[in-house]
């Protein structure tokens, strides 16, 4: 059963968009007169298959679902081969998966298609290498931190979107420059400033 009624609403005033205006260019909201376009696809009119929630009870001699022994098996999992009823079958990446395989692959980080978020370590390293430089003294801590983050996460999968490693390169460059500057300053102080003092 669909969870929401098949009603589309104007996003400005919330009034319903009549069926006559679906898939029609240059329609106007009957309430607020805002021009709108409602693009409707066959999925809106099709009912969700209710058989999947009521799989048949297994008869004697028939294969049953691995997770529901009383349900009739419909397909095998393409990863582990376990028999699955239509309730447990998940179509994903063009294959049939069981929930256990999806969970296992996800925990191993092998299913990037299921990631809901990704940290951007290259941005973190770059921020650590650049922003504290305005205050100068924090760089004594943040430059090594930036180097550590860059080294630790150089091969960690970054964004799902196309992204280069240029931020990591920039972070390493800035961090190394800052560390060299601190070393030079320390050497200068030891050689000249402290003996004079």
């Amino acid at each position: 059963m669909p969870l929401a009624s098949q009603t589309l609403v104007c996003s400005k005033c919330g009034a319903a968009i009549p069926v006559e205006d679906w898939n029609r260019e240059h329609a106007f909201c009957a309430t607020c007169r805002s021009p709108h376009s409602a693009y409707v696809f066959p999925a809106l009119l099709s009912k969700i298959d209710q058989a999947s929630t009521a799989a048949a009870i297994v008869a004697e001699g028939e294969a049953s679902c691995y997770y529901h022994p009383r349900k009739r098996a419909a397909v095998p999992c393409d990863q582990c081969g376990r028999f699955l009823c239509s309730l447990c079958q998940v179509e994903f990446l063009g294959q049939n998966w069981c929930p256990g395989c999806i969970d296992a692959h996800r925990q191993k980080g092998q299913l990037s298609n299921l990631d809901a978020s990704r940290p951007l370590y290259d941005n973190m390293a770059l921020v650590l290498a650049t922003l504290p430089a305005f205050l100068v003294w924090p760089t004594i801590f943040t430059a090594p931190m930036s180097l550590y983050v860059s080294a630790r996460h150089w091969r960690t999968p970054s964004s799902l979107l196309p992204r280069t490693k240029v931020r990591f390169y920039a972070a390493v460059l800035f961090a190394v420059l800052q560390i060299v500057a601190w070393i030079w300053l320390a050497a200068y102080a030891i050689r000249y400033a402290i003996p004079h003092a």
């Binding site: 609403v9 693009y39 809106l44 990631d115 809901a116 990704r118 951007l120 964004s159």
Partner: peptide
């Protein structure tokens, strides 16, 4: 600046797109 959050919509599941001029 430090992370990205994703939400996927499979083309087979999309029922409608509504575009309203403001």
């Amino acid at each position: 600046p430090f992370s990205q959050q994703y939400r996927r919509y499979y083309f087979a599941d999309i029922q409608a797109l509504v575009l309203t001029e403001l």
